[in-house]
């Protein structure tokens, strides 16, 4: 029938960019990032991370439509920074945080399991 393929929810179609950057023409230091085939899972985490950055004035995300599998993040920063810089910093920071989290979790598990056996 006309049901869309199941993999369309997470496979980026050929010729489409995973992440697209578009500068806002009306507001200084503002931009929109469009990420294909992602959802609240990463959107909300990035928004959280951007808010922690003192140079970010505005950060928000939305899913334009439940059947369009894409995520839109809008960022506005102070003149000392740029949306691209803030985005890069947020994601690399997040990456490091998660690395740390994984390490702490695994240490705790190893300790717990050594207590049991």
């Amino acid at each position: 029938m006309n049901a869309p393929d199941r993999y369309e929810r997470f496979v980026v179609p050929e010729g489409m960019k995973k992440v697209a950057y578009e500068r806002d023409m009306k507001i200084m230091n503002a931009a929109t990032f469009t990420i294909q085939r992602e959802d609240h899972t990463i959107g909300n985490v990035i928004r959280m991370q951007l808010h922690r950055d003192p140079s970010v004035l505005f950060a928000g995300y939305r899913l334009p439509h439940p059947l369009q599998y894409k995520l839109v993040i809008k960022i506005q920063t102070t003149s000392q920074s740029s949306p691209m810089q803030a985005y890069n910093l947020a994601v690399t920071d997040l990456d490091k945080e998660l690395d740390h989290l994984k390490q702490v979790f695994q240490e705790e598990i190893a300790q717990k399991q050594s207590e049991y056996y």
Partner: peptide
């Protein structure tokens, strides 16, 4: 369950790295 959670962290790390690597 502990392996599942480690896998989940890895998947999230992977997502982060993809959306930074594929930013042109």
């Amino acid at each position: 369950p502990n392996v599942l959670f480690t896998e989940a962290i890895k998947i999230l790390i992977d997502k982060c790295q993809r959306i930074i690597a594929e930013l042109s």
